[in-house]
Amino acid sequence: MAHDKSDVLHGSLALMVLRTLDTLGPQHGWGIARRIEQISGDALALNQGTLYPSLLRLEQMGWVTSKWGASDNNRRAKFYSITRAGKKQLAAEAKNWERISDILGRFVKPSKESI
């Protein structure tokens, strides 16, 4: 069963978090974790806890900010939002991933010309 889920590639978690915050707006950690699992179709083996040190590092980089607020069930929760620098980083990282994925694609499915 464990092989049905893929490990989160190093460095890709930051991209997922930034994309989630860019799309959904301010979210608490659990909301971000749920969104990542939903988008991946529950195919990622994400230890939800690993999200928090990653969020802290993104905050230290100045790519996200956090603020305490009230959740849907009226509990105090910490909400994260993407900053302008975070949006720029997201654009750069997305471009980088597209490039890497394109290169890997050429290895996985080599065209006749490249063989």
């Binding site: 608490h28 950690g29 659990w30 806890g49 928090y52 959740s71 105090r76 929760a77 910490k78």
Partner: peptide, 13 residues
Amino acid sequence: DMEEEFDFHLQSQ
């Protein structure tokens, strides 16, 4: 803050 944030996460899940 960390305790409260993690507790919120665990309770929500």
